[in-house]
Amino acid sequence: MGASSTTSPKRYIKIWVLLLGLLVISLIGPTLEIRVVTLITAFGIAIVKAAIVASEFMHLNVEKRYIAYMLGTMVLLCILFYFGTAPDIMKADGQNWSRSINVENVKGDAHP
């Protein structure tokens, strides 16, 4: 039942070397202090690395499609939950509403 991988250890080691190379790039990128480069190298490469690990090391590339569909659904739910509520948190007012709580008076570090 399920998929069994026929990948050789050499391929796994090649993938590992690739991941280490991406790690080095993600460490060097932010040192340039260019916002776009930082976003691409720090966050973008992290997403690429996660995709490579899921595909090659966790054998998502040989698993049945149900697994990929399930994971994709989780990502969509995460996006929906976050962006559905983020504007209320990130903004102080909108077209038809404004935040009634004065966050400066809220105890604690309201403004990070």
């Binding site: 039942m1 149900y66 697994i67 995460c78 996006i79 976050y82």
Partner: peptide, 30 residues
Amino acid sequence: TGIATGKLAVWWVLGSEIVIFGGLLASYIM
């Protein structure tokens, strides 16, 4: 589904972690 039940359960757990860490990391990025 043709997938071993134990394996499917582990994938479900990993999928739930996407929601947990995805929200946390998305909040961090924003």
